[in-house]
């Protein structure tokens, strides 16, 4: 089972730029989704920002299903500057891959719980790290797309864009760099304090 926890209101507000489409995923029974809190936060966002559409659907991790579910909203999506996704880490990666030219941001952190992990396709994976990195990496997960789960950029082991661990695997950080380049967001890789993972929060926090 997974638990998705909303990122802070300040974080989400800082991501909400221009015309905004919000996508909520209420798919898997195995994923706890903070429905009420998300709803409240989205109402507040709509009051202060230009939210053009709020879509609530299911199984956005499945690219074909995602395409089908979003069909009737494509006018709004095409006109949007930002897509905010409230889902597990797999869902947001699938949306980011579907809309290569859009700024797609994750509004949730995903934590693991023991048990069945939900119905997810194999092309992307969520490491359930509890501190979702996707907003600084163009929607490509450095935890699962990089063999070493590096969070501060490419190691010296990539050759011809492939990973040193598996020559059939694309270097995750090369993919991230190219995606950020395309989005004109390479500044996302220029930050003052290096990112340091917190393995102490990878277990669900019960009391807060």
């Amino acid at each position: 089972m997974l638990i998705t926890q909303l990122k802070s209101k300040e974080t989400i507000e800082s991501l909400a730029e221009g015309k905004i489409v919000i996508i909520n995923c209420h798919g898997c029974k195995e994923v706890y989704f903070a429905e009420h809190e998300a709803d409240e936060l989205q109402k507040e966002l709509a009051a202060s920002k230009e939210v053009t559409q709020i879509i609530t659907t299911d199984y956005i991790c499945n690219p074909d299903n995602l395409k089908l579910q979003l069909k009737k909203h494509m006018d709004k999506i095409n006109a949007a500057d930002t897509i905010l996704v409230f889902s597990c880490g797999v869902g947001i990666q699938t949306v980011a891959a579907q809309f290569e030219d859009k700024h797609v941001y994750s509004c949730c952190d995903t934590y693991p719980l023991p048990g069945f992990q939900g119905v997810t396709p194999l092309n992307v994976d969520c490491g359930q790290c509890g501190e979702c990195y996707l907003n600084g990496t163009g929607g490509i997960c450095p935890i699962t797309a990089c063999s070493k789960s590096l969070v501060n950029g490419q190691c010296g082991g990539a050759k011809n864009g492939k990973c040193e661990v598996d020559k059939d695997m694309e270097c995750g950080w090369e993919r991230i760099y190219r995606k950020l380049e395309k989005l004109n967001k390479l500044d996302a890789m220029k930050y003052d304090a290096p990112k340091v993972r917190n393995f102490g929060i990878s277990e669900i926090q019960t009391a807060e």
């Binding site: 501060n152 950029g153 490419q154 010296g156 990539a158 050759k159 011809n160 864009g161 270097c171 950080w173 090369e174 760099y177 390479l186 890789m189 220029k190 003052d192 290096p194």
Partner: peptide
């Protein structure tokens, strides 16, 4: 630290080099 000047993706290496300098 190290850097790969003859990498086939030298721009990605330069970005990492910058992160190392900043660190």
């Amino acid at each position: 630290a190290v850097v790969s000047p003859c990498s086939d993706s030298v721009d990605v290496q330069l970005a990492k080099m910058e992160a190392k300098v900043k660190a």
